[in-house]
Design a protein around this nucleic acid. Structure first.
Lengths: 69, 69
DNA sequence: ACAATATGTCAAGTATATTTTACATATAAT
DNA sequence: ATTATATGTAAAATATACTTGACATATTGT
């Protein structure tokens, strides 16, 4: 499923996918794929993304038992 | 760095590394390596571990700017 | 002393995260 | 119409997460 929390948090900081990718030390396609949702990043990358956006893991990557789809 | 939060949360549920590994669908060595700290699991595995232990990502895998090492 | 369980570690293989290059589309600005 | 930026997507290569099998040690119970 898409990661809309991430997309929204990035938009709230007015960063492009390329900007965020550079801040995290990964490629733009990696950020795109994570937002698109069809894959499974490493925790260290998730943490880098969180720090870049001023959020925590629970805020961007945790889902309560029933909130997804 | 070692993940002592994980080790403690597992101990609190009286689970062996092998037990937790089986609950998460990974090998015992993978859990051992994560606790030992010298690698970088995927977010989906972190989430599986959290659900198995009744914790969230922030509780087991997040570190505030200054609390580690 | 012996058996059983839990943990730590290593090496070789497999699966998959991530990169690089490239192309396509959409939008906004000139 | 053209330029520039942001996004979506794909294929091939590389890095690394994870598995399997194996062995060693420590601990606890019999």
């Amino acid at each position: 499923m898409k990661n809309l929390k991430l997309k929204a948090a990035r938009a709230a900081k007015d960063l492009s996918q390329a900007d965020l990718a550079q801040m995290c030390g990964v490629s733009r396609q990696t950020i795109n794929a994570i937002e698109k949702g069809d894959y499974n990043p490493t925790i260290n990358l998730c943490i880098a993304i969180c720090r870049a956006l001023g959020r925590t893991l629970d805020e961007l990557f945790w889902e309560e038992e029933n909130e997804e789809e």
